[in-house]
Each structure stands twice: as C-alpha cells, then as structure tokens.
Nucleic acid binder design. Sequence first.
DNA 1: TTACATGCAAACCCTTTGCAATCGT
DNA 2: ACGATTGCAAAGGGTTTGCATGTAA
Lengths: 156, 156
Amino acid sequence: MADKALIEKAKKIFENFLTKQGSRKTPERFSVIDELYSLPEDEHMDVEGLFLSMRNKGYTISRATIYNTLDLLVESGLAVKHQFKDKVALYEQALTYKHHDHHVCNQCRKIREFSDPKINEIKEQIGHGFQSAITSHSLVLYGNCEIENCENLQEF
Amino acid sequence: MADKALIEKAKKIFENFLTKQGSRKTPERFSVIDELYSLPEDEHMDVEGLFLSMRNKGYTISRATIYNTLDLLVESGLAVKHQFKDKVALYEQALTYKHHDHHVCNQCRKIREFSDPKINEIKEQIGHGFQSAITSHSLVLYGNCEIENCENLQEF
DNA sequence: TTACATGCAAACCCTTTGCAATCGT
DNA sequence: ACGATTGCAAAGGGTTTGCATGTAA
C-alpha cells in the first residue's frame, strides 16, 4: 500500500518539475504527495478527504493549498483528476498509471477500473475523421449491480 | 431546424408522460420543450442559455422551473443531460436521439458527435466481467485541432 | 530581502430549496 | 377548493479568489 520507494520517486519527479517551473519546494506541497501516494494506488480521493486526513495526522494545511498542489500534480503528471457524475472532483495517483477507464455502480457508487484496447481504436478512428489530435478521453460505464449478496448493497 | 412536427410529437409524448405521472400540464413545461426543440438537433444548451433566450422571447419563466422541467424531460426520455469537463450541465434533444458520444475541441470547446459500435462491445464485455447490467455510459474524446485555418481558431 | 506560497474567510458559480402566491384539475 | 407548480430569493456545496502573513531562495 504505502510504497516508500514510489513516494520517493514521485517526490523526485515533483522536485524536478518545480525547479523547472521556478516554483518553490514547500513542505506543504510534498505533504500532499505523501498523502495521495499513501493511498491504495487505485483509490479515488476528494479534496475534503485529503484535507481531513492530513489535519488528523497533524499537518497544518489549508484546502486552498491542497487545491493548488493538486493542480501542480496534475500538470506534472503525478495525479489524475476525475469528474464523475457527482459534483466533487476525485484524484488518484498517476505515477504507476496505466491508462484505464472506470465503471461506477449505480447502487453503491463504488468505482472499479478496467482497460480495453478497443478504446484506442475508437480514438484513432475518430481523431482521424475529425482532424483532431486526441490528447485524452474519459469513458465511464454505469451499471446496476448483479452480484448476489453484494456486500456493498446492504445499506440500500 | 425548427421542425414543427417534431415539436408536436415531443409535446404529445410529454403530455402522456405527465398524465401517467399525475403531474400538471403547465404552459411553462411545454414552453421548455418549444425552446429545446427549436434548437438544431445536435446543439447542447445550458440552463442559463435557455433562461435568457426564453426571457428574451417574452416568456415569464424562472430558472427553478427550467431545472424542474429539464429533469422531467430527462425522465421522459425527451432530453439528455451531459456533464462535460466544465461545471455547467448541458442538455440536448433526445427524441431523434441515436446514442452518440462526443468529441470536444481543446481549443474552441466545440462539441461534435460521433458513434462507434465498438463501444457496445466494450460495454458488454466489461458488464459481464463486473457482473453489472450496464445502464449507460459516457465517452468524451478531447483533442487538439488539426484543421487548417479552422474558423473557430481565430479567437485564440 | 523579496517575491512567491500559505491560511483563512469571503466570494463565486451552478444548482437546490423554502415559501408565499398562483393556477391546473 | 385543493394541492401541485410557479417565481423569487436565499441557502447549499464545491471551488476559487483576495489579502495579510509567512517563508523559500
């Protein structure tokens, strides 16, 4: 879960990024990496969650700084931002990121990841047809749970 | 563009829907259909746009009523709601709707529609794998414009 | 030293809600 | 007449912004 080497690697990349940008290497910025990269690699976290969890651990950090830092992490390729149907944005680590898409359960909102190469064929084909260099995509499937005795279903 | 017969058909469907629900057939509700279905069929409009345009035409309608009515239109299958990267929700007619996905230009934000059957294969495959009855999906491609002298590019 | 970054709270923006007035049925 | 629907304005919730204070370089 908390892969020390991975966290160090992320910090190193971030340091280079900040240097190149001429931005400051503040402890708050690195603490956000610590937090995000201490989560399971496929976990999706929102700003409030990061904020509360960091405050609980004794960090003094503000929501504003978390928002700012997450923008930098996205720019530097260390985080990915997702906007599902809900209004909060969710972030996940991107360092070990192989591009994947998401499936959201209509009942429990649990997010699962999948990857299907057919999406790349679609991107190539449509990009060509529209004379557009596709830079990214977002694919989310929503479905009703068909798992018998699904443990997440009990609260519904 | 403004296909009278289509608008009438939409109103008829809406009327049946409202009757079945035991909901009232108010003029405001039908005026929203008029407005949405007077747009080009592939146009995506937000609530503020509908509100201003309707006010300009002399309707007295509130934003709240537009929000309420759009929910009903979505329920009755007469409108589709989209949430792209931006924070406003966009709506489009759904009566002539064949499911399609969207391509958003990174430069001018123009939305174009496409349809690729490969998405259905992905849905079947992943739905099966996750034991989930896929009810809907959202696929958006983002790309950089490669159209020479693109008319929309001038303002950038 | 000096700009850039931080923390806080206020402002923002879209959407939802509460409530008195209105209007379908 | 009754109760659902409306319009308005206020509240909500996530995100952004302004500004005084703090701090990396």
